[in-house]
Amino acid sequence: MVLKVLTVKLTEGVVQEFIKMLKKSQMKMLETIMVLMIFFILLVFGLVFYARFSETSAQESHREQLVTQAMDATERFQYSPEVLCSRGSVGSDTNCFDLLKLDAFKDVSEENQGQYNKYYPNNLIEVHIIYPEEHQRDFVLFNNTDEHALNEELSFMPAVFFDPVEDESYFGYLRFAVWY
């Protein structure tokens, strides 16, 4: 009887000790799991943030590149001798374009598209005359765009358009679009 009681008590003690041990190891495991979870959450956050940042900066740098391309086209056009005014003055013809030369440029650039495409890649160049009102006129000067392109980046240039027939200078601007 005594032996039986002793055996039961011993068994109970061992079981309790075992349960205690189990609880302790469970706690430890839980702690480890929590630490690992926090670590992975941080890692995931870091990766998501980095991926988004990389994507945004890549898009931004692509956009910047296209705007620069549009500005380069603007600058190139600004110094094209085939379209600049020649009113006999020296140095005062900055941003002045001869309307007759522009009309000729339109035809020549259409006939020699390949030649001009390398200077104005994916460019659409438009002329807008806005002042005086009676001479308002908009036209496409050069078109080298892909028909599948969906977006454009722009650059503008205020300019004077000289009409040698009327001997008058009109105010307007050139619109340079890079399509992609």
Binding site: T94, M157, P158, A159, V160, E168, F171
Partner: peptide
């Protein structure tokens, strides 16, 4: 760029 070219173009325009 546009501020500079705008002023020159505006001054040169016949009214």
């Amino acid at each position: 760029g546009i501020a500079r070219t705008w002023v020159f173009a505006m001054l040169d325009t016949d009214t």
